[in-house]
Amino acid sequence: MEQMIKAAWRYRYFILSSIKNELRVRFIRSKLGGLWMIIHPLSQVLIFALILSNVLSAKLPGINNKYAYALYLMAGTLGWSLFAETISRCLTLFIDNGNLMKKMAFPRICLPLIAAGSTTVNNLLLMVAIFMVFAALGHIPDVHVLWLPVLIAINLLLSLGLGLVLGVLNVFMRDLGQVIPVILQITFWLTPVVYNVTMFPENVRHLFNLNPIYPIVKSYQNVLVFGVEPEWGPLLAIVAASCLLMLLALVMFRKAGPEMVDVL
């Protein structure tokens, strides 16, 4: 563990420059460049907002903005996209870098750190864009927004832990790579991002608590839109579970590391 941290520190320049390069390469040859990073999720939000706002707008209590639904949707999307993107990246992380791992001796821990770094930067850019749209729609989040960095950290911890376990397993069981995107898609619809739990009868709402990403997304919505404190109880449970998951991920990463190169 200590060795991993030391190695990562020694390679800090490589990790940072990799994150930078990854962002640059993605947009270096397009005219709009980094704008695309924001256009994609925003267009998604726009589509949902246009299609669903008429159906749902009346059913969002607690906000006095006529664009309430769009605000709600964006807050949820911000949380969900970090989760989904991190998991998708980690899932194919080792397979994508297989050749590099076979030919170069460098601390393997760099790979997840680069992946986490680049999805976080993406997400922060999206956050900036969303804040701008918020302002344009006349919504300024209140002081509770200061909890957002904590939520991002929790989100990252959960998605990185889960993603790493899946990523290591995916090297040996390639079917995971096919199944997980489908499961992510299902989970998206099981998470109240485009709809609201209040649309469901009281007696089935507790089922949402089985979804580990639900408390996180809900807290995003709380601090960004409703101006309410996050619900710490479920979040702490998530943090505890994520820590265990991360530990499992690191153990698997260490144990599987040598074998990973052999099957890549």
Binding site: R10, Y13, S17, N21, R24, I28, M104
Partner: peptide, 16 residues
């Protein structure tokens, strides 16, 4: 898509 110089930086970084 990166220049020779940028790739050289990256590659040397990979060597630690």
């Amino acid at each position: 898509d990166l220049t020779g110089r940028e790739n050289a930086f990256h590659s040397a970084g990979l060597m630690g």
